[in-house]
């Protein structure tokens, strides 16, 4: 069956795509690569530095701390948003006007711009006029996001959960709606428990949308900038300074083009690597395992 005719003219068909990708991604990226290996002192004074910037970035204590904070943040919000999103999708009404009403209500946070989300929560948590800040204080809780790192973290996580869980819920909801009724009927006849139905029907059918949800939420949260910047400004101290804020300070604030270029590339590669590893692992899990032992 395998008698294909080798035909290299097919490469011509790839060419337009290649040109497009070159302009949209490769060329802009190469300018960053260009900066990352040079020390630019002025328009006519630049020196080749090799991997020096990369080394110093990787060994920078402040950046390492920001990186750890970033990873923790992404893991925490994933651990909350994915199960919560699935749970919301499971209890959402399936048809009728209630379904539309709930969908609209749930989607609202997704429509609010990042900066506005930050501002809303900034006001919301103020001790004097914010409902949450004032309320907690009235309850006798010493809540202050500008002073307590714990409060700042909890608030940022709460804000992100509020802003982005709807995305996970909506993806899961669409996944659940695509399960044919016969599956539930067969499960009833097979006497499956509620848990078994979730574990063996709903969750497997949600795998694909969950992969998308996890990837989107990971990438998004790993690049988070505007919301914590507006809410806490990275403080108290540097307790909520995440990677993109460090990068902005370096590139825009201090005009350190070389180090920030190196940093950007590392940042980009980390996201790429994590996403790739995650995706490949999940896809491999769905394949048949090589036969070994009994069932």
């Amino acid at each position: 069956m395998n008698n294909k005719v080798p035909n290299n003219r097919a490469w011509l068909l790839v060419l337009p795509m290649l040109v497009l990708v070159a302009f949209s991604a490769i060329i802009p990226l190469m300018t960053v690569v260009n900066y990352s290996v040079q020390d630019v002192l002025g328009p006519n004074a630049r020196f080749f530095t090799g991997t020096e910037w990369f080394q110093s970035m990787l060994n920078d204590d402040a950046l390492q701390a920001a990186f750890l904070r970033q990873i923790s943040f992404s893991l925490i919000i994933l651990a909350i948003q994915i199960p919560l999103g699935i749970g919301i999708a499971l209890i959402m009404p399936k048809r009728g006007w209630q379904a539309s009403a709930v969908l609209i209500l749930i989607t609202l946070p997704l429509l609010i711009p990042w900066n506005v989300v930050g501002s809303i929560w900034q006001i919301f948590t103020r001790g004097d006029i914010g409902l949450m800040g004032w309320g907690l204080r009235e309850l006798g809780i010493n809540y202050n996001i500008t002073r307590n790192a714990g409060d700042a973290w909890a608030t940022i996580i709460l804000m992100d959960v509020w802003h982005w869980t709807p995305l996970v819920a909506m993806l899961c909801y669409s996944g659940l709606r695509s399960i044919p009724e016969a599956y539930y009927q067969a499960a009833r006849i097979d006497r499956a428990s509620k848990w078994a139905i979730f574990r063996y029907i709903q969750l497997p059918k949600l795998t694909n949308v969950l992969v998308i949800a996890v990837l989107l939420r990971f990438m998004h949260s790993f690049m988070i900038y505007a919301e914590p910047f507006v809410l806490t400004g990275g403080g108290p101290g540097s307790a909520t300074t995440f990677l993109s804020q460090s990068l902005t300070t370096m590139a825009v604030g201090q005009q350190d083009l070389g180090p920030s270029a190196a940093f950007s590339l590392i940042y980009f590669l980390v996201i790429l690597l994590v996403s790739w590893v995650f995706y490949t692992t999940i896809m491999n899990m769905q394949k048949d395992k090589p036969p070994h032992g009994g069932a």
Partner: peptide, 15 residues
């Protein structure tokens, strides 16, 4: 009773 449906219903992730 048992019922077999028009489109096969199987539990994907199980052997």
């Amino acid at each position: 009773i048992a019922q077999v449906f028009q489109f096969p219903v199987i539990y994907d992730t199980m052997t």
